[in-house]
């Protein structure tokens, strides 16, 4: 069986989901069922004391692995604080490190992300850092004890696909850690492309959560990811500038 190993845990699904932006949180369960996704991200925020809302965890089946993110963190110190809070809340030991101080493009701060990874990996977290695709930072994250790297395809929520394609290819070629393409994947074809390129998984939130039918879109993404993975494992054929006939070039019925 072709499994994705993160830390000590193996997953048969290579689609990681998110819980943000759903019109109706009740849709999350069906999204997970239809996509087969086994990992889902959640965020931590202050309780709104004037209007406490439902805890998102109430909408996630118990067998799903929670991946709390550190969104809202602007530096390593804040990311570490959020990760520890998530662990205390009984969320397990997975964490997606997300350190962002750029509001326009939501670009991750690779340097602070590395600092947080060093601390949290030592504390026993399974650290999945959200990064700008860069082979140098990937090597440093590996040395720091990260369990995967999560380079971005394009800005969060942009649906713009793999705008960082050539950088992603370098990361995939050189990384010893699983590579999960995170952010910007707007269509199943983007996800399929990432998997064909050799990514180990993709994380999709916006494109599923904001679809007119999130469960059906989740299923479409799941199929695309499986197709891309299968093609990658079979090694794709080389491209050529010229045609190479698929029908025989003899025995034409010319008059």
């Amino acid at each position: 069986m072709d499994m994705l190993k993160l830390g000590e845990t193996e997953f048969s699904s290579r689609l990681l989901s998110g819980t943000g932006k759903f019109r109706d949180k009740n849709e999350i369960k069906e999204v997970l069922e239809k996509s087969g996704s086994q990992i889902i991200t959640v965020a931590l925020r202050r309780v709104n004391l004037e209007n406490p809302t439902d805890n998102i965890l109430n909408y996630i089946p118990k067998h799903i692995t929670l991946l709390p993110n550190t969104s809202g963190a602007r530096d390593a110190k804040e990311a570490v604080r959020i990760a520890r809070i998530a662990k205390e809340a009984g969320c397990g030991n997975f964490v997606k490190i997300e350190v962002i101080c750029d509001a326009k493009y939501l670009m991750p701060d690779n340097e602070e992300t590395l600092k947080a990874t060093k601390i949290l990996a030592k504390e026993g977290f399974v650290v999945l850092p959200y990064i700008m695709p860069d082979i140098i930072i990937c090597k440093k994250l590996e040395d720091a004890g990260a369990s995967a790297v999560m380079p971005l395809g394009s800005p969060i929520g942009s649906n713009a696909g793999l705008q960082t394609k050539s950088l992603l290819e370098m990361v995939i070629e050189n990384s010893n850690l699983p590579v999960i393409v995170d952010a910007g994947i707007g269509r199943p074809s983007h996800a399929c492309e990432a998997m064909e390129m050799g990514a180990d998984g993709v994380l999709i939130n916006t494109a599923i959560a904001t679809a007119s039918n999130p469960a059906k879109m989740a299923e479409a993404f799941s199929l695309a990811i499986k197709a891309g993975r299968a093609a990658h494992l079979l090694k794709l054929q080389e491209e050529s500038r010229y045609a190479n006939a698929s029908s025989p070039l003899t025995g034409f019925l010319n008059l």
């Binding site: 931590l44 925020r45 309780v47 004391l49 805890n55």
Partner: peptide, 10 residues
């Protein structure tokens, strides 16, 4: 005092 909970996020 901070009281923190889980919300939807990606």
């Amino acid at each position: 005092i901070e009281i923190i909970t889980f919300m939807g996020g990606g």
